[in-house]
Structures are given as C-alpha cells and as structure tokens.
Amino acid sequence: MADNVTPRVRVPREASAGDSVSVRTLISHPMESGQRRDGDGNIIPRQIINRFTCDFNGQNVVDVTLEPAISTNPYFQFEAVVNETGTFQFTWYDDDGSVYEETADIAVS
C-alpha cells in the first residue's frame, strides 16, 4: 500500500435542484509509472491508481480509468447534476488492491 495516500475533495456546500455543480478531487499518490529505474538500474514496479469513481446518492457521475500517464497526485474536476440533497461518494482503486474512499455532502433546495 502506498504511504500517506490522502484524498481531498471539494464540492459546493449548497446548490439549487437541477444545477450542474463543479466537483474537484485530488488524491496524494505517487502514480509510479513502471518506467523509472532505481539506483541499481532495476525497474521500479508500477503502482498507480487505476480507477476512480464518483456517485451521487447512489447514481454514477463518472467512472474513470487511469493509466500511468496521469500525473502524480491525480486531479480530476468534473460536473454533477444534483436534484436533491445528498452525499457524493468517491472511490479510488489502487493497483495493489487498496481502495480509498471519501464523501462530501451538499444541500440542495
């Protein structure tokens, strides 16, 4: 498991029903590409976040497949339509099987 993998998310605190709100997400992860070599010349094995999903009140917003070409500390910004108050669920899947999660609430009137 990569060390110190910390997700951060940002959604507006409130919105009106039907709004498309901007969601920003970041997770601290080295995204080791599998292309680098260590001091002895050996390949440093690949270890990346390979998938990221976001759901709102159980409905999928985005489902992203990530490859090693995504930068260290993967950042995604996208939009979600919110029709009711609820909770965003964010999930990141690591090559090594670890799963990282985060949630965020929004009040919709």
Partner: peptide, 12 residues
C-alpha cells in the same frame, strides 16, 4: 488552495 497540490502536504 484546492488546485494547489502543495496543500496535500499542508494537510499532512
């Protein structure tokens, strides 16, 4: 502060 990746480390 969200777009600034340094804040991951500030959080830590």
């Amino acid at each position: 502060d969200f777009d600034n990746p340094a804040f991951i480390f500030v959080d830590q």
